[in-house]
């Protein structure tokens, strides 16, 4: 008997394991984004949103939804992927991954696939929550999902590297802080540039870009 050229069962085992870990912490995993999103709308929506009525024809409340989703997508992706691979390194259970007939690609596929799934779920939950507060209109659902997937995968791959590189849990926290906190402002900015015909200095400075 000769081993298959691609260990799909092994990838699936990792994926299932990681998703199972996610389900175990489902409550906190989903409650946190729902609550923060709601707070955003309650606090900013009522405080600022009423004064800033429209940006490029889009109401302010709806306008910030993609930015909120992206912010969570970045942090969740890096955190999930780095934590996912750092955990077996920390507990020592990585011995099993290393001794299994898995290629590096298959290992990454399992971990990054699961982490990307999780962060996409969180982004979609934020979208659904936002929908309760403001009117969200999705122009291109397929393109949106593809965009979410690509961004999630990219940041999960980066997170995987962080998880492999980190020497401890502090470093695991530091990287997202250093990289993600500044990046939503640029991401929010780029989203804005595409949404709004006239990305003026005024809107740039008035949109909350970090938590």
């Amino acid at each position: 008997m000769s081993a298959a050229a691609f260990n799909a069962r092994g990838v699936w085992a990792i994926y299932k394991f990681e998703m199972h870990r996610f389900r175990r912490t489902l409550w906190t995993g989903l409650a946190v984004p729902v609550i923060t999103t709601s707070l955003y709308f309650v606090v900013f929506g009522s405080a600022i949103g009423s004064r800033m009525t429209e940006i490029g024809g889009v109401p302010y409340g709806s306008f910030i939804v993609p930015g909120l989703m992206m912010l969570s997508l970045f942090t969740e992706s890096i955190f999930n992927a780095s934590f996912g691979i750092h955990m077996p390194r920390f507990t020592g259970t990585i011995y099993e991954l290393l001794s299994a007939p898995l290629s590096a690609f298959e290992t990454v596929l399992g971990y990054v696939g699961a982490a990307a799934t999780k962060s996409m779920i969180v982004a979609l939950v934020i979208l659904a929550t936002a929908n309760l507060f403001v009117d969200v209109h999705i122009e291109h659902p397929v393109a949106m999902l593809a965009y979410l997937l690509l961004v999630a995968t990219t940041f999960c791959l980066f997170g995987f590297i962080v998880g492999i590189w980190a020497k401890g849990f502090e470093q695991l926290q530091v990287i997202p802080l250093l990289i993600v906190t500044p990046s939503p402002s640029s991401a929010a900015h780029s989203t804005r540039s595409r949404c709004s015909p006239n990305p003026g200095a005024r809107s740039r400075s008035s949109i909350p870009s970090s938590t």
């Binding site: 799909a8 069962r9 092994g10 085992a13 394991f17 007939p101």
Partner: peptide
């Protein structure tokens, strides 16, 4: 080295899956 929060059955089945 064990996954502290996994049930016995799941962790043994997981190993079998890892090996394809």
């Amino acid at each position: 080295h064990t996954d502290q929060f996994e049930p016995v059955w799941a962790t043994v089945s997981f190993s079998r899956g890892l090996f394809g």
